[in-house]
Structures are given as structure tokens and as C-alpha cells.
């Protein structure tokens, strides 16, 4: 077998010859291999092949001996291009495979310089992408993914000086938490709280609610800040129902494990409120202020475990009729108030 390498490319298809010329100014000159048609034996070798192959390509031998990158791709059945293949020395090459009439061709073009340049931009871009994702996940944990998404789209704008809107406010709180807290180890308390808080907060976020504050064993949420097709009171009521259902499921699991079960009560009131940002330039937080907010808090504190207490405005604004018991309650600081009680019926889960 002749070991002499042919350095001629006169039979090369025009398209490859053009590419060869284009790449002639690169750090390393291109190299090419001419192969038997429909086979993988080397007919001719040319260019700076020493740069691209660990093993010297010998005429008449199978090309995959010199070029492992082609494993499983031979014989060539159609044209293809492999971009930015990293060589052992860290340089990059494009590999262009072309099927011609009488023979097949492989062209190797050094693309190290462009790849190195582009790597810097890609590194910055990916670093930013990962950082953005990190920030988004952190925000999601505190204000909910829907709020983060809408804020990113510009759909969430609250004027710092305040904005009047009709909203529904929901308060929810664990019943019997204080004696539980006092009787248990702090680690048990925090683990238990996290379980119940998941039941309480996820439904709020799922119904386009914004968590205004978390109060240790409870939360205040407002509905109507984020757009919703259902209306703020319907969203708040559905969230309340889902909270009670999730708590029931959790309690059933805890019962099986012999753990203490806690109840949750919910209060909902609706009305006009001023939404605004409170605080300084460095630390601001969203809040809703209005007479119905206090009413919602009082309703929640009167709600037995497993019940939702609604004020009259909320009840009348619901689009779907619900099975409620009307009653009069004397709310602290407010006086006699007409309220509607919805009781969560235990279901087999």
C-alpha cells in the first residue's frame, strides 16, 4: 500500500473547494479526504491533515481508523455537517461530508477562533440565564410564580401613591396553634407549620391571589390585583375551599401517622381598597388598606375550623350560588354584622 499522500484537490466538488478557499486564512489550514463511493476507504488525503488526525490517514485504509468521530456514520449516505467538534488539543473543527458522483468527500475546517469568541458571549448569556432563573425561583417562593410572570410581562403595576380597586381579602389561620406550639419541640413545630402553610398558600397562588403577609400560623391574601377571568370574590372563595380540602387531606395523612391534626378557618370580605407600596426606597412592600380588610380579619378569627365566613358584599357578588348559612355576628370593633357561613363537608379522598 502506498504511503504517499496525495495533496491534490483538483477533483474536489466545487462547493467543497469554495469552502476550502474560505477557510484558508484560519489558524490551521483545512484538510480533506476523498473516500471510495459508498465505502469508507481513503482514496486521497490533502491539506493540513496532521492538525486534525491523531493517526496518519493511510490510503486504502478505513477512514474511521484515523477519524473516530465518524463512528456509525459510514459509509456516507447523504451530505451532512458536524459543527464545532473539539479536537484532542482543544481546537475546534467543522466536518463537512459530501456525497459526489464517483466518490465521497470529507472536509475538515478549523473554526477555533470563531468558537472561542462565541464561547465568551455564550458564557455570559448562559450565566445571565441561570442567574435570572435563580432570581425567578427565589421570587416565586415569596410572591408566587403567576405574580412574577405578570410582573415580567409588565402586567402588574401598582402606583406607589396608591390605587383604588375593588378587591377580595382572605385571611386564613391555623386553629389551636398556640397550645400545639407550646407542647412541641421547635423543630417539630416548624416542620408542621410548613406542611400546613403549603396547604394554605398554594391554593391562593393558584387562584391569582397575592399573599400580602404571612403571620406565623396564618396568611392574608388579596384577590383582584392580578387579572382573572373569574372575578376576585369567586377566586377568593375557590381558594378558601381548596385550602380546607388540602388541610383535610393533610389531616388524614397525619392521622394515619399518629400525628396531631390542626384545623384551619377562613374569612373573606370584599370592598374597595387602596393598593399601594409602603416603605422606603430601599425596602418596600405591597399592601391593601380598606375597611373590608379589617372585616375579613375579624371574620377569620370567628371562623371555626373547616368553615369559611363571608361578608355580605362577598356573598352577593359571587357568580355561582353557594350553600351558605346566614347569621349575625358581633365582630370586635365593628359590631353586629351579617355573615354567611360555608362549611367544608368532609369527603373521602
Amino acid at each position: 500500500m502506498s504511503e504517499r499522500l496525495h495533496h491534490s484537490c483538483h477533483a474536489m466538488p466545487e462547493i467543497l473547494a469554495k469552502r476550502l478557499t474560505l477557510n484558508a486564512t484560519q489558524r490551521f489550514q483545512p484538510a480533506w479526504l476523498q473516500l471510495t463511493k459508498g465505502g469508507s476507504d481513503i482514496l486521497t488525503v490533502g491539506g493540513a491533515w496532521q492538525h486534525y488526525f491523531d493517526v496518519s490517514p493511510r490510503l486504502g485504509t478505513d477512514v474511521s481508523e484515523a477519524c473516530e468521530v465518524l463512528l456509525g456514520m459510514l459509509p456516507l449516505v447523504d451530505d451532512f455537517e458536524l459543527s464545532q467538534i473539539q479536537l484532542v488539543d482543544g481546537q475546534y473543527t467543522d466536518v463537512i461530508a459530501l456525497c459526489d458522483h464517483d466518490s465521497d468527500w470529507l472536509l475538515f475546517c478549523d473554526v477555533s477562533e470563531e468558537t472561542e469568541k462565541f464561547q465568551k458571549y455564550q458564557q455570559i448569556s448562559n450565566d445571565l440565564l441561570l442567574l435570572q432563573g435563580q432570581h425567578q425561583r427565589t421570587l416565586n417562593r415569596y410572591v408566587g410564580s403567576e405574580v412574577v410572570r405578570r410582573d415580567a410581562e409588565g402586567g402588574l403595576s401598582i402606583k406607589a401613591k396608591g390605587e383604588r380597586r375593588v378587591i377580595s381579602t382572605l385571611f386564613t389561620d391555623i386553629r389551636g396553634f398556640t397550645p400545639f406550639n407550646e407542647s412541641q419541640d421547635a423543630q417539630v413545630v416548624i416542620e408542621t407549620l410548613n406542611e400546613y402553610m403549603t396547604c394554605m398558600l398554594d391554593p391562593i397562588l393558584n387562584q391569582a391571589g397575592m399573599i400580602d403577609k404571612i403571620t406565623g400560623d396564618g396568611a392574608m391574601a388579596v384577590f383582584g390585583v392580578l387579572d382573572s377571568e373569574h372575578g376576585c370574590i369567586d377566586d377568593a372563595f375557590v381558594a378558601g375551599k381548596q385550602i380546607l380540602k388540602a388541610v383535610q387531606t393533610l389531616n388524614e395523612q397525619r392521622q394515619k401517622q399518629g400525628l396531631e391534626q390542626l384545623g384551619v378557618g377562613v374569612g373573606i370580605a370584599s370592598g374597595e381598597a387602596v393598593l399601594g407600596m409602603l416603605g422606603t426606597h430601599h425596602r418596600r412592600c405591597f399592601t391593601a388598606i380598606g375597611p373590608h380588610v379589617n372585616r375579613a380579619a375579624r371574620l377569620e378569627s370567628n371562623a371555626p375550623a373547616g368553615d369559611i365566613l363571608l361578608d355580605r358584599d362577598s356573598y352577593l357578588a359571587l357568580h355561582q350560588p353557594i350553600d351558605c348559612l346566614p347569621m349575625s355576628l358581633n365582630l370586635k370593633g365593628i359590631g353586629d354584622t351579617c355573615v354567611y357561613v360555608w362549611h367544608h363537608k368532609k369527603t373521602n379522598t
Partner: peptide
């Protein structure tokens, strides 16, 4: 350290 990959490394 995160280093963004380019093309293919075998």
C-alpha cells in the same frame, strides 16, 4: 464553576 460548552467534546 460553570463553563458553557461549545459544539461537541468527545
Amino acid at each position: 464553576k460553570y463553563l458553557s460548552s461549545m459544539g461537541v467534546k468527545i
